[in-house]
Structure formats: structure tokens, C-alpha cells
Design a binder for these strands. Structure first.
Lengths: 336, 336
DNA sequence: CTGTTAGCGCATTCAA
DNA sequence: TTGAATGCGCTAACAG
């Protein structure tokens, strides 16, 4: 339909003033129940919808929240960690009447959303955001980081160190002494934290990190195979592999299988993330569960609190991780 | 920064009128090059950004496009087909200055984006949208469907029938005579089309569809295993499986492997989608490539054309699919 | 409780 | 070419 009905139309039709209609519909301000109901009924019949732009211009709030994913975490494909979080954020915000303005962070296009006042707040997923940019944006709007932190900036993360420690301890306590660590890159803060958990676990059991057992595949689509080539091409084969994420774990299983080795009999494998991949492969992956839905919801709630003028306590919210034991670690069928 | 600079500030500073500033900055209307440059320089120095709401209210265009994914295609996890398309849409729209308002279609929340005039146009991903809703929304704003069609509604799809036909012919022409079809559900139009391609191929080679060789796992997270349980529990084992998507193909490989069967030696497997999953598993999956990035880009471009007042020709854009041969079909190592 | 008035920030007539 | 006036549709402060 071309012309939309406005509060003026309703006002004229009922012989009241536009501001009365505004009060009746927005619920703000005093108004007699009788006229309110009368107005609401007519608005309903006419299919009235407030113009979001006009309302936003007057109230200085748009009802939209920017959600940003850095391009390094793209593509949003079968390997993506953030799709689920994005979805959880959208679901939670929608409940409270907010819309999601989705953006990737490759270009300078995205800060403009804030400068042009398109959004009331911002949620940024992933690392690789410059601290300067975050702090300058935070001056304009409430902002929450997910899976990343900067001092004093509200954020939601998962316990990467703790989860990695648990996973590694699980392998160690089932008799493994030669546990390799495989990641795309240690330059990523999350993977770095997972390495730290691995290191801590070894240390607790009186072991040290062996250089040849820590391999990186680099930031590339075949990172898993590059890393495994290094590991399999090296001198000694580990009895177990702890991968920094499920993608690398699945790649490890594939490489081992291709090399004629059996998982978990010859080499045990444990991953990290517990996404859909984990149950798609054979053998089903033992992995550390990262509460992605909870992270998204927590981030949305934290931002909502900020938008309401409240505080974000705690500033940094650390969600727990836990080990999901399946069969790739070998402890179920046979412990060593 | 609390208070933002407006065109009034710039006008006052330069002793010109706000409307002159508006002309200089928006590029619309006549203005002398000298004053334009002067104004632009000052605007630049002051870090001026137009208020998107005010501009939108005046021009009746928001610069935002709604992108909707139906909840049935969620979660946006490792199994998701649409994340990549969403991303491609965002990238293409960003180039042309448009932002993406992301929404899922579960509730009635999403049509409000249109009614409240938050978006200039709409892109809807996936099936399971009621034709009534689509048509009523299309009265308000330009609209493009992706992976789905309704008569007369602009849309972008891929050649599901052709791809499925190719995949099935590939198996048949390598000697297979007992080819099963495995899908989540034939209620889905895309899967239905893929089944149609399968049927056509069989027919071309003088074969008929055998009931026991067509299995559905249902809409559930373990759909792959349910379907494979039916197939493996049935009387006769096929020599090849054509799965309606990579998820089911990977599930088939897993189930076959678990049952002690070798892929492709005992049973060949071909999938559909050619997403990241295809190369993550062992053996690497032969599958039909669906040009998801191209689909997203095409949808964005089609909508942009509509927003510019042009036409969408063709109304239905069918992007080609192609068979990506890897090793799960068995034709590389050994043809029968 | 309700109507009047005055913006929100920008674009776009129409005069000058 | 530029300025003044008006409107986009809604909210909010102030009277009545």
C-alpha cells in the first residue's frame, strides 16, 4: 500500500489531537483508559504502524543494535564459530524489541553505522578489532565484546584456558604421555588461551611442552592438513592430539585415517567447540563444549542492561566450558 | 562524543544557510564549486556525519535492507547452508551503501521491519515462507527470494534438478545400478527438486525408482542416522548413495563406516552443496557444487536494480550447478 | 486528562 | 547560486 496511516489520520478521524494518539499508542504519559482504548482500536483497524525513523528522530533511539563479525572469522560457512552466536543474539534482542544490523568488519563501512546514529548499541564478535577503534566507538554507544576483551570494556568470553586444561588432563589421566597440540595459529588470542590450558595441564602432571608436538597450520583453508603434515612428517608420533578447535580435530582424524592410522586406537583426538561437526564425523569427537548460544544471549542481555542505563556487572563475563566425552579420545572403549 | 555536529553547525560557522550545506554535502541540486568545496572541507574537519534517521525521514529511504532466514534453516551452525549467502549479500550491499537488517522468521517480529519502514527492500532466504506473506510484503517494498520461487516474484535459485541429475548419472555411468536417495525430507522444495533430478537420471538410463532406496530421516538433528538406519536395516544394500545434501552424505559415510563398510569400495556416496564439510571428511566428498556466494551476490544485485526503479530480469535467475568429483564416489581410484 | 507548541536533522520546494 | 519556508512523522514539555 502506498500511503501509510499516521497518527494525524487517527487523530482527525477521532477528533482528538495527534499527541493524544501518541500517548495512547506509546503508553507514555497520562491518558484516560477510555480514549486510549478507543484510539487503540481504531489504530488496530487501520493497521497503523509507527514510522520507526520519525520515532527514532524524536526519541534519539533507533531500536537497532549493530552486530559485527570480523572478516577474519568469515566465511560464515560450515567452519564458522560465530553464526550460532549471531543467531542467539538476534533471538534475545528480538524479544526486547531490538533489531540487528549485521555487518562485517572488513572495511570502514561499519563504524559509519554508529556515526550516522543507526544503532543504539554495538556487539562485536571476535578478536582482531583494534583497541583504538573499540574505545572510540564506545564513546558513542554502549558496546559489548564477545570472545574478546579489553580492559574496562564489557565483554562475554568462554573459559578457554579451563576447557583446554580439562581436555588435556583427560588425555593425560588416561595414560597418554605424548600429547600434541594442533592449531591454526597461536596468534589468535582464543587459540593462545587454549594452548595455555594445555601447557598448564602438562605442567600439573609434571610434563613439559615439547616443541615438535606443537604445530600450527596457519590461517588458510587447508590449515588442518598443513599442520598434520608437519606432525606426521616429524620424527615422533604422539599418542594423542589435542586440537584447538573442532575443525582442526576433524582434519586430524582425516589425516590420520588417510595415513592408515586408527582413531582412537593408534592416536586419540580431542577437539574444542563442540559444534555440529563433532557428531558428524567418525569416530564421534570428544571435545570441549563452548556455550555459544549462552554467550550470544549473555552478550545481548549485557547490552540491553547498558541500553537501559544500567551497569554491566560483571564487566567481563566468563562462561564455563566442559568436556564432552565421546569416542575419539578412546577412553570409553578402552582406557590405557 | 555527546553532541553531534549537524548541518546547522556548519552553516552557522560558514555564514551560509543549512540548505546550502545540505546541497553541498548530498551532491543534489545546483551549487557553486567554490562554496561546495569550502563546506565539504569544514564538514570533514568537524567529522560531520549525516543523521541517518533525519535523512531517511526526509527522503523516505533508510539505506537498509532486511535479510530474513527462516527458523527452519537455523541454527546457523556448521550445518547451515545460508550463512555464506547472508555474508555474500552483506558484502555486495555494502559496496552500494546499504546496510543489512538481519532477522529470523520465527515470529511476527520480522514483518514489522517493513511496516515500520525500517527497510527499503527485502531478501528472503529459504522456503517455508507463506505465499500470502510474501505477496503482502511485496506491496510495500521490493523483494527478492533466494532458493525459492513464487510466480512473478523476483528470485534467485540454483539448478537443483540439473545438479542432481548430473550426480546420479555420474554414478550410473560408472556402473552402479542400485543407487539410493537419502534426504532429510521430501517436503522441502529443494530436496524435492534434487529427488526429481535423481528420478530423471534413472529414467534416462532405463531404470526406475525403487521405494526401498528412497529414505527420509525427517527434520531432526540426527536425521542422517535415522535415514541410514532405515537404509541399512532394509533388505538390500545399494551400491551407491546419492544424498540430498552434504550433511546427509557425511552422515551416510559415518553410518557406513560405523557398520564396517568402506566408502567408496563397498558403497559409493555423492552429496550436494559442496560446502566446507565436503573436504573435511574422509574420504573427500564428491558433491554437487551450489554457487552460494554467487547466489547471494545475484540476489543483492537484483534487489539493487529494483531499488533503483529498474526491473528484475530475468524474474527468476537460475544459477548453474556442477559436479565436483572427489573420491567418495569411487570413480577416481577405480571405475566399475 | 488533553491540546498546543516546538523541535528531532535533513531535504526540498519556491522565491529572491 | 543561495536563503527562507515547509514538511517528513513522531515525541515531549508546557499549558490549560
Amino acid at each position: 500500500m502506498g500511503m501509510r496511516v499516521t497518527i494525524h489520520d487517527i487523530a482527525r478521524l477521532l477528533g482528538v489531537s495527534p499527541s493524544t494518539v501518541s500517548r495512547a499508542l506509546s503508553g507514555k504519559g497520562r491518558i484516560s483508559p477510555a480514549t486510549r482504548e478507543k484510539i487503540r482500536r481504531v489504530a488496530e483497524e487501520l493497521g497503523y504502524r509507527p514510522n520507526a525513523l520519525a520515532r527514532g528522530l524524536a526519541t534519539r533511539r533507533t531500536g537497532e543494535v549493530g552486530v559485527v563479525i570480523h572478516e577474519r572469522h568469515l566465511p560464515l560457512d560450515e567452519r564458522s564459530f560465530y553464526g550460532v552466536i549471531l543467531e542467539a543474539i538476534e533471538a534475545e534482542l528480538a524479544v526486547h524489541g531490538y533489531h540487528v544490523l549485521f555487518s562485517t568488519m572488513g572495511d570502514q563501512f561499519f563504524p559509519r553505522c554508529v556515526e550516522e546514529r543507526r544503532v543504539d548499541g554495538l556487539i562485536i564478535l571476535g578478536t582482531d578489532v583494534s583497541e583504538d577503534l573499540v574505545r572510540s566507538l564506545a564513546e558513542f554507544v554502549p558496546l559489548v565484546l564477545v570472545d574478546h576483551t579489553f580492559p574496562g570494556i564489557p565483554s562475554v568470553v568462554s573459559d578457554n584456558v579451563g576447557g583446554a586444561r580439562l581436555a588435556t588432563l583427560h588425555l593425560l589421566d588416561h595414560g597418554h604421555r605424548e600429547v600434541a597440540f594442533v592449531a591454526e595459529t597461536l596468534a589468535d588470542p582464543s587459540f593462545r588461551a587454549r594452548f595455555e590450558g594445555y601447557r598448564l595441564a602438562l605442567r600439573e602432571r609434571g610434563l613439559r611442552v615439547r616443541r615438535g608436538f606443537v604445530v600450527e597450520g596457519g590461517r588458510r583453508s587447508d590449515s588442518d592438513q598443513v599442520a598434520m603434515a608437519k606432525l606426521l612428517g616429524g620424527g615422533r608420533l604422539p599418542t594423542a592430539i589435542f586440537a584447538a578447535n573442532d575443525f582442526m580435530a576433524v582434519g586430524a582424524i582425516k589425516a590420520l585415517t588417510t595415513a592408515g592410522l586408527k582413531v582412537p586406537q593408534d592416536v586419540a583426538v580431542v577437539g574444542f567447540d563442540d559444534g555440529a561437526l563433532a557428531t558428524l564425523v567418525h569416530p564421534p569427537l570428544t571435545t570441549v563444549r563452548v556455550p555459544r548460544v549462552e554467550m550470544g544471549r549473555a552478550a545481548a542481555r549485557k547490552l540491553l542492561a547498558l541500553l537501559r542505563g544500567g551497569n554491566a556487572h560483571p564487566v567481563v563475563e566468563i562462561l564455563p566450558t566442559a568436556l564432552t566425552v565421546r569416542t575419539s579420545c578412546g577412553c570409553i572403549s578402552s582406557s590405557r
